[in-house]
Structure formats: structure tokens, C-alpha cells
Design a protein around this nucleic acid. Structure first.
Lengths: 256, 256
DNA sequence: TCCTTGTGTGAACAGCGTTCTCGAATGTGA
DNA sequence: TCACATTCGAGAACGCTGTTCACACAAGGA
């Protein structure tokens, strides 16, 4: 037992050392330039040795992808958790800022998960859960907002008139095509109910779930465009721009 | 003269044959798997011969990037041009549909221009103009909408009340952070004035230009997410979803 | 006609991912 | 403790890659 434990631990540690060295090299030369041989050189081992732990270079890349999803989600979660629970828009903005900051700090890892998919890579099931953690964070904030608003209107009718109007207008706009998307909306709601049974999303309008998906798309799109150079000579004040995007998407998702 | 013309023509034709073969292989195996040797094999020439025409593999990829930008912009332009000039929302939607259709038809080329940037590639100046053609198309529609609305309100005060309210709400929402982005907005307006001096954009609110950039970001973001698999088990009705996005972004850009 | 220039070839080099074989080390059951 | 099984690392090898170089040949201009 303990012997097996020793073996397993040695193995786990070596896997860790390999992925660490690989991640370091990834940060320097990017996914395209990542070389198994260079990693083994760094570790002072034979190139063939790594095949005891990863069946192929793509598998090593997959491990880095999983790590990157984890890192991004952890960064977003930590930033969001540091905000006062009642400050719903503050939490929303914190997620946006954290995702951008992580992308700027780890551009190659960001490109690995949101850039061109690596050819041999088909997302394993475990990745799907990790990949959705950021959007689930946004969904949670939207759900809590909805719950708060439900409680407020039922308790006292004195809500902010302008805000309410705004939400109504947004809802009218976004539900215009909701008929075509009813299937997806139901799927999203069902998915939310399974993934986060702790959230009280009963009765939350489906278009808010859709607004969360769109907000997530726009968030990643903005950071991707900034990192990949598409905003060069177009948007200069990137942080301020993302703040504006966060504000707008929050409003549509009912995070007021 | 004509002799030189013969040489130059032969050279141009061979460059064309090389890029064609490369594009064909790109469509099959993607950018990562594109091999200079395979291209030369296809053409029945020595691997070293291609270096008379492209200094490196990255240069060949750059040529494909330029071609891809061209192809995408051409597809969007053609689709937009086929819509009745007065149907501004129809033209906006046509651009969205065409970009998505082109992406689905040429996924690897789309990944080449909007996926992870190839390491050795720094966008040459000529690319910048090509890259912005799609967003300029959207900008043009927004400008024409503004011009039409200006004419309508000055001619007769009888505009659609609901639409006007909606635009006002959107404007109020999006200008909330416009102060921070004033510099970028002015740059965008100046860029527009230079790139498309034919457009009468005098007095068009700056946040509409910003809305165009955001619409472009969201369009590419949606297509990217679909192509790269991030919408798997999230959004199923992709066409309908993009239609909804087009509708929403058009409204914010004042294309009503 | 000569000479420069452009073009294609084939060999070569270094590097890559991957496979295979072969000792050596390690863990396991008697 | 001994024998067996499993795991591990090393090293050589294969076929592939991008790229360079020297050389032969054709074309264009003087």
C-alpha cells in the first residue's frame, strides 16, 4: 500500500514537473513552439521518457489546457469572492477585470484555450465543467440579482423607476427573437439547474440566461481581440472599454 | 518590357499556384499541419524551390492570411450589396449571416485570421486595411442610418415613438462610460473620416461608432465560439442566436 | 556573343515527434 | 529472502519538418 503510494507519488510529482516545465516553455514560445524535447532537456531526461507519462505531445498540451481553464477560473473566482456579496454589479465587474488581467498575464495560455483549437484535441468531459466555470460565475450573479429583485418588488413596490424601465426595454428587445431560441433557453435553464442546484433561479426569465451567455461571449471576445492585436489602432483605452462592456452586459442580464 | 513582362507573369502565376495549393492543404489539415514540403510535392517541385518566392513558411502563411481577410471581406461585401439599399437592417443582418457562413465554409482560414496569431506574424500595413473592411461595412450602414434619421427628423417630426425611445435609452446606457472612452471615440471618428470620406458622418454620435466596434467584436466572437466548439451544449440554434445578436447590436448602433 | 540575373535541383543539416529495445530499478507474492 | 512482474529511463533509430547551400541551366540585356 505504502509502497504503491510511494510510486504513485513519485509519478505524480514527475508529471507535475513535466507540466510545470512545459507551461514555462509555453509562456515563452507559445503552443506552436512547444517542444517535447526542449521540455525534457530542461528536466535533464531523455525525450522518450516523457512518453511514460503522456502518450503524445497533444496530450501534454491537453493537460496545459486543463490547467489554463483552472487558472483562469480560479483567478475570476478569487476576484469575485473578494467583493462584498451585496455589491452585485461590483462582482460582475470584478469577473470581467479578472479575466482580462489573467489574459494579459498569461497570453499564451489564454490563446491555448480561446484561440485556434489544437488539431488533435477534443475536449474531454472533465474540461467542459472547468470551461464553464467563468460563465457560471456570471450566471450566479445574474440569478442572485433576479432573486433580490423578486424579493424587493414583492416586499415593497418602491423600486428604481428608471432602472425598471430600462430592464423592461432590454427585455422587450431581447425577447423579440426568443421564440427561435426557446429550445436553447430551456436547455440553458436546465443546465443551470443541474450545474448549480444551489441557485434559486425559479422563474428567472430565460432571456437573462441568454444574456449571460452573450456577456461571456463578449467578454472573451474583447480580451481575445485585445490580446490578438485586433484592437490595434481601434481601441486604445482597453480597460475603460471593457468596463463599459461590463456595464452594458450587466444591465442586459438584469444585474443592476 | 514585354520580356520582363513574361518573366514577371510566370513568377506571378507560380506564386498563385503555390498559394492555391497551400490554401487547399490549409483547408484540409489546418495551419499547424501545413507543410511546405507537402505543398511542393503537390506541385511536383523541389522543396527548396518555394524559397525563391517566399522567404519562409511564415511568409507563406502570411499570404494566406491576407487572402483570408480578402475572402471574408468579399463575401460580406457581396452579401451586403445584394440587399436593397434602403433596407438598412437587412444589410446589417446580411453582413452577420455572410461572416458566419464564410466561417463555416472556411473554418481553418477563419481560425488563421481570428484564432491564435501565428508567432512570426506581425500584421503588415496592407493587412490592416483588409482586416477592417468588415467593420467598415457595418460602420457604413450605421452612418447611413444616422443620415436617414437626421433627414427624417428634420423633415417631419413624425418618427416612430417607440424606436426613438429605445435609441435614447441605449444611448443613455452606453454613454455612461463615454467619458473614459472619449479619446478612442475621437480616434474612431477620425479613422472613419479618413477611411471612408464618402460617408456623411458629420454629427453622428460617437457612441454609435463605438457600438459598431462592439458589434464587430460580438459578431466575430459568436462565430469563433461556434467554430471552436465553445457553444457545444450551450447554444444549439446558432443561426437564430446570431440573428438575435445582429438585431440587438443593430439597435444599439442606431440601425433601426 | 557574353555576362548577369533568375530559376530549379539535390544534397545536407539540425530539429522535431514518436517508437522500439534493452538494462536497471522497483514493487509484489511465496 | 528469493523469484517474478511491472515500471522506468536511456539511447538509438525512423521519418518527417523547415531551411541552406552549391551547382546546373535558361533567359534577358549589353
Amino acid at each position: 500500500m505504502e509502497n504503491e503510494g510511494v510510486r504513485a507519488r513519485a509519478r505524480r510529482e514527475l508529471v507535475q514537473r513535466i507540466t510545470d516545465a512545459a507551461r514555462e516553455q509555453l509562456a515563452q514560445v507559445g503552443a506552436a513552439g512547444l517542444s517535447v524535447r526542449a521540455v525534457t532537456r530542461e528536466l535533464g531526461m531523455a525525450p522518450s521518457a516523457v512518453y511514460r507519462y503522456f502518450p503524445s505531445r497533444d496530450a501534454l498540451l491537453t493537460a496545459l489546457i486543463v490547467d489554463a481553464f483552472q487558472g483562469l477560473a480560479d483567478a475570476a473566482s478569487a476576484a469575485e469572492a473578494a467583493v462584498d456579496r451585496g455589491d452585485l454589479t461590483g462582482r460582475w465587474h470584478a469577473v470581467f477585470r479578472a479575466v482580462r488581467a489573467w489574459g494579459l498575464a498569461h497570453p499564451h495560455e489564454f490563446a491555448l484555450i480561446y484561440g485556434s483549437p489544437v488539431p488533435g484535441y477534443v475536449a474531454p468531459e472533465e474540461t467542459a465543467e472547468l470551461a464553464s466555470r467563468v460563465s457560471l460565475l456570471l450566471a450566479q450573479i445574474a440569478c442572485e440579482s433576479w432573486a433580490v429583485q423578486q424579493g424587493a418588488t414583492s416586499a415593497a413596490g418602491a423600486t428604481d423607476g428608471h432602472r425598471a424601465d430600462l430592464a423592461a426595454v432590454f427585455a422587450a428587445e431581447t425577447t423579440q427573437h426568443a421564440g427561435d431560441l426557446e429550445g436553447d433557453i430551456r436547455r440553458l435553464q436546465g443546465y443551470l439547474a443541474v450545474a448549480r442546484p444551489d441557485l434559486a433561479l425559479d422563474g428567472m426569465p430565460g432571456d437573462r440566461a441568454l444574456a449571460v451567455v452573450d456577456a461571456w461571449t463578449e467578454l472573451i471576445g474583447c480580451v481575445t481581440f485585445e490580446l490578438f492585436g485586433h484592437y490595434r489602432r481601434v481601441i486604445d483605452a482597453r480597460a475603460e472599454h471593457l468596463t463599459a462592456v461590463a456595464h452594458r452586459t450587466a444591465a442586459r442580464a438584469g444585474v443592476l
